[in-house]
């Protein structure tokens, strides 16, 4: 359960202001928002693993 909350907190931090101001910049690759989203998705099974077991 701790991993779930950790991932949720981290995702909230990355996806909410003011951190979004860092990666919502035109100087970065256009696909960066998708990449961040993908990383979060890939971490979900890790966050839920112990609970599923």
């Amino acid at each position: 359960m701790e991993r779930t909350f950790l991932l949720f907190g981290l995702s909230l931090l990355v996806l909410a202001f003011p951190v979004t101001g860092w990666w919502l910049r035109a100087t970065l690759p256009w696909y960066l928002p998708f990449l961040i989203w993908l990383v979060i998705i890939l971490l979900i099974p890790w966050a839920h693993r112990r609970i599923d077991n």
Partner: peptide, 20 residues
């Protein structure tokens, strides 16, 4: 712009909390 992604990012947050 990328605001359209929020409609799905919020959903991802809900699914992160799926166990609870």
């Amino acid at each position: 712009g990328f605001m359209f992604l929020t409609v799905y990012l919020g959903l991802t947050l809900a699914f992160i909390l799926s166990p609870v």
